[in-house]
Structure formats: C-alpha cells, structure tokens
Design a binder for these strands. Structure first.
Lengths: 343, 343
DNA sequence: TTGAAAGCGTTACCAT
DNA sequence: ATGGTAACGCTTTCAA
C-alpha cells in the first residue's frame, strides 16, 4: 500500500493525504480523521526512502568504525555507548546506521555518506590527538559529534568527554596515599586521545610527589584480557614489580586479575588495582570513596548526550557546537588496598 | 554532483554512465574508463536512497531491539555479536541498521521496515520459546535470521545457535565429578530460549545422578552484575549454601565473585564457579579441559554466520532456510575446584 | 481547505 | 554500444 493507492481508495488527493499524515495544520479535522483511520486500517506507512529523496533527510545517524579499531566493539563499553545513543535516537525519531570501513576508506566513506544522503550526521568514536576526521567533517559540512576530544584541534566542534586526566591524577594520588610508590599503568594505545590524557594524569600524580617515571611499568596496548594478562605477568615477574596497577579498562582488568592469581598473589592485598568499575562498587560496605573514572553507566550517559547534541545540530544547523565535560561518576576500585608492608 | 550533472559534463547519457559505474558489461571499455575517471575526479557516488527507490533494495540489515531487552546491549556479548555481523556486512556490501522500539510496537516496526523499504532483512535476537516474531516475519515475507532458536516453532527458518543444553549438561557433570552435590544455577530470564535450554541441561545432569532439583538454588533474572551479586549473596547466607555455581553470563559472574569475596570465601576454593569465559582460559597451565560453553569469540563467530545466512537468503530468496548449530568452543571455567571436604 | 504537477536521483525497459 | 524515458513513492510549490 502506497500513498497513491491509499489516496485513490479514499478519493482524496495524494497531497492532502500526505499533509494529513504529516501533521500539517491546513487540513480539516474531519478529513484528517478519515485519512488516519484508513492509514491505520490498511497498515500504510510512508516509504522513508522516497520521503528522504524528497526532503533530503534520512533520520539516520551514522557510526563509522574503521577496521583498525574493530576491537573496540568487543570492549563492553561499546555496548553501553550504543545503548545510550540508541535510546536518544529512539526518543527523537532517529535510527542508527553502523558501518565498518577499511582505514584508508574512511574519508571517502564520509564523503559518500554525505553525498549519497544516507545519514544526517555521524558520531566520531575513539578520537586520536589531532584527529583528521574533525577537519574533514567540518570542511564537508556533515554534522558530527565526537565521543571524546581531540587534543590539538582548535576549530570548535561538538563533543562529550569525561575528565580522564583528573580522574587518573586522583587515582594515582589515592594509591600514593595508601603508601604505594611503584605504581604501574596499563593503558590503551597512546595515540588515542583518552589514553594520552590518562597517562598525563598519572604522570602528574607521580611528579607532584617527586616520584620518578618508569617507562618499564607503563604499558600501552589494545585493551583486551589477553594483553592485560601478559603485561601484568611480565611486570610481576620482573626484578622490581609494582605494588599497584592502574588499569584503563574493565576488560583488561580481567587479565590483570588472572595474572596476579597465577603469580600466587592476591589482588587487593598483594597488588592493588584500580580500574573501571560498575555500580556494584557502591555496595561495598556502603563506602563510596570518590576516586575513579567512567563507570559503565556513565558511558551510557555519554552516548545519550552525544546523540542529543548531534541531533540538536542537525535540527538547527546554524547553532554553535556544544561541548560537555562529564564529571565521571567516581567510585573506588574494590580491590584497592594499602601497599604491602607500608604500615 | 549527481548522475545528471556528471553525464552532462561528459556529454554521455545518464543511462550509459549509470551502466558503466554499475559494472554492466554492455558498455565499451573506452567509455567506461573515461566515465570512471570522471566519477573519480568529481567525487561522484550514486545516491543510495534514489538507487534504492529504483531497485527496491537498500543493502541494509535491520537489528531491532525491543525496549524491554535493552539491557542486552550492556551485555558484552552484544558487542561481540555485532562485531561479527558487521564484519560480514562489510565484506558483502551491506550495512547495519539499528533501531530500538517499544515492545508493543515490535510487530508494527517489522511491517514498517518492510513497507518503507528501509532494510532488506532483519536479525532476530534473543528469541523466546514460541517466539511470535518468527511467525510474523515468515508471513510478511521479510527475510530474517535468528541468533538462537525458538523451541516450539515448527516452520523452517534461518538460525544459528550454540549447543546450550549439552554444554550445561557437561558443566554440571564436571562439577558432580569434582564431588559437588549442591550446585546452583544463575540463569537468564527463563522465557529466553537459551536460558530454558541451559536449565534443561543442568536439570538433566542432576537427574542422571539422582540428585534432587532444588528450586531455591535456581535463579533466573536479568544478567547483570547486580543480580549476580544479590542472588549469590542470598544463597551463600542461606541455611544450605551451594558449593558450586553455574553462571549463565560473564557479566553476572562479576557480581557472583564479589558476593563470594564479601562472604569471606574464595572463588575456586570454597565455591566453584563455572561461567562463560574467554580465550584466556586456554592459558591456564596449558590445560584445556573441555567443559563449558560459548566463549566471547564464538559469539562473534555466531554473528558472522547469522549475517552470512541472512544475506544468502536475501540474495537468493527462493533458497531454503539454513540452520547451523555451532559447537561451542569449550573451555574450563578457571575458578573451578573440587567441592570443599570432598577429598 | 484541497488538488495538480514538478521535482528528488536513480535504474531499467525499450528503442535505435 | 548507446540513448530516451518511464517508473520508484514521496514532499512541496503553486493555483484554485
């Protein structure tokens, strides 16, 4: 059933039917009612593709995943972020378009998406420092919003981020206050902007107390169980193992824990670990010592916010870019204890 | 730049340009070359919406998430599944469309998607027993493939599943062999087909040894940290606590572990736990005792397979439905030990 | 308040 | 091998 057929059934013009269903005011109440009833009865929905062709809008938001960052989908927070974004889309009449592209195609993909009118805007995930996508998209005029920020980019753009640096600074200070002096960092790839910021917070924390930075306990890799495991095992079996570890990802932390256990040590006693954690942390003895960074629910919030900002921009193309720095919901890592022998 | 403009620039008809770019054979090599060069130079891509309107295909696959199962996105395996599916889409020229709908709208949404020609097919996630979606989609003629199966549905349809029942049966037997007699089950909602199958495997395992089923240690809830925590805590503080727990989800297991630790017990010693696990398990002492169920990478494989089957169906509408029972990659839960006092 | 008709940018049929 | 043109199903302008 299409518009033409429906209008013929009703003996009313396509124009009027379209207007009635589109909610335009200039159609009489009685005709509107009969049109809506008929649409209902025949199960008519306007063909979005045709509508899009006519209006130039698609009500779809693109998420583009370069193949090289494919592993990010396996990170649980990917689902959290998407869940948040989709919730917003749903409430504002949009839907999500997800495409994986090979890395060299990324620029061409944006161009294509714009040109071929497939999406009204895109979300940029996993920004690097000086991320070229921001420049490209700005020049193209394709609306976009970034989850995270990109150091070094000076043009204004829409972004939502959490306070990575100050969170890691505080986490480092927390461990120092517990008596730790040898604190390792297991981080994501350091060309990722968030990882840079976290490292900077960590370094600042150590330097404030005059503690030397030791690159041999600063790891930077893909954030998966397996790397967390290997990195931790390597450090624990070295001459001068750390007594505490800051872990940039919940999923790496699974491997970290494994390595600690295999070394015959106990996480939280022999080796302190601070990592992303979840709402459960609040349960612990009622303590909610504010220390650490993005919980999973805050990633979901970020998804909601990014989506909202992007849709605002789409619906109001001349508005200025919006930015939002989310104060991470801070929770203490549950496995964090004093340094061995520190008191 | 659209087809018309490009063809005018070249002084060739739209028809020929379209054919050249579409890879049709009946265009001479020389004109094809000049057309391709021009398209390249002007950055021309065909507008997909218009092409879709003309061809009736969109090259998009829909994933529809009813709002009530929204929490599934927060389950890490959501990302794994999507990663696998998207990889297939990308290699076969498709893209993913993700939409969240309120529960009562689900049927209407399918109808709309078909009608409004937005997707060429849909993936059905989280099937329940006798899932009505299968009937609906079959009747509508919208191609679909199911991740999982739906007990009680007898029409043929495309599905990919893992051997949930036999995995839980074997896991149960493994624990029994370790001397456990009081084994708890922390499962997903039991209207979910996978959860039913797992429960059936668990029950069969116990019954084979003549052990009575105790509903008070069979839990069935949303699979999140918080529920895993509460369920475990409740059971451990009861009169007759379990010595082993089968956990249906990696993410619930985080809460399970927390509850065990808070009870002053050690997971893997005082309480054995078998749950989904990851590739890391293979590392443990080089042991790869085959016991348990879907690893995260196998979920990703499932995503790939489901996507391939669906695209096969779309490209060959008259082919019979395909089904695939994946033998789960079996790994031993790493925290699994003998029953306390059993020797 | 309603309707006729001109797009929107393709593809595909039918000629040549 | 190439071109003219009618769809595809909607929105929107212009007229009535």
């Amino acid at each position: 059933m299409n518009l033409k057929e429906l209008s013929e059934k009703l003996g009313i013009s396509q124009t009027t039917v379209s207007r009635a269903l589109g909610g335009y005011p200039e159609v009489s109440e009685t005709t509107r009612q009969s049109i809506e009833a008929a649409a209902q009865r025949y199960g008519y929905f306007p063909n979005r593709r045709a509508a899009g062709l006519a209006t130039g809008r698609s009500n779809m938001i693109g998420h583009i995943l370069p193949k090289s960052t494919q592993h990010e989908m396996v990170n649980p927070i990917f689902g959290d972020f998407v869940a948040g974004a989709v919730e917003t889309y749903s409430s504002r009449g949009f839907e999500m378009f997800l495409s994986q592209v090979s890395d060299q195609d990324e620029g061409a993909t944006y161009r294509r998406l714009l040109q071929t009118a497939v999406v009204d805007g895109v979300i940029v995930q996993g920004p690097r420092a000086n991320d070229p996508r921001i420049q490209t998209l700005t020049e193209m005029g394709l609306p976009f919003a970034v989850h995270g920020r990109s150091s070094g980019v000076n043009v204004p753009y829409n972004w939502v981020d959490v306070n990575n640096k100050s969170s890691f600074l505080r986490a480092t200070e927390f461990l120092l206050d517990l008596g730790h002096r040898r604190i390792a960092l297991i981080n994501g790839f350091e060309d990722m902007d968030f990882a840079m910021r976290r490292r900077n917070g960590y370094i600042a924390g150590l330097q404030n107390r005059g503690i030397e930075i030791d690159p041999s306990i600063m790891k930077s890799q893909e954030m998966t169980e397996i790397y967390g495991y290997h990195q931790t095992r390597d450090m624990l079996t070295s001459d001068n193992p750390p007594t505490a570890i800051l872990v940039s990802s919940l999923i790496s932390a699974i491997g970290v824990r494994r390595a600690i256990e295999e070394a015959g040590l106990t996480m939280g006693k022999d080796v302190s670990v601070i990592t992303h954690d979840d709402e459960l942390s609040y349960l612990r003895n009622g303590e909610t010592v504010p220390i650490f960074t993005a919980t999973r629910s805050s990633v979901r919030d970020a998804g909601k916010h990014v989506a909202n900002i992007l849709i605002d921009q789409i619906e109001n193309p001349n508005s200025l870019p919006q930015t939002q720095l989310l104060e991470a919901q801070l929770v203490v890592g549950r496995s964090t204890g004093p340094a061995p022998g520190s008191k």
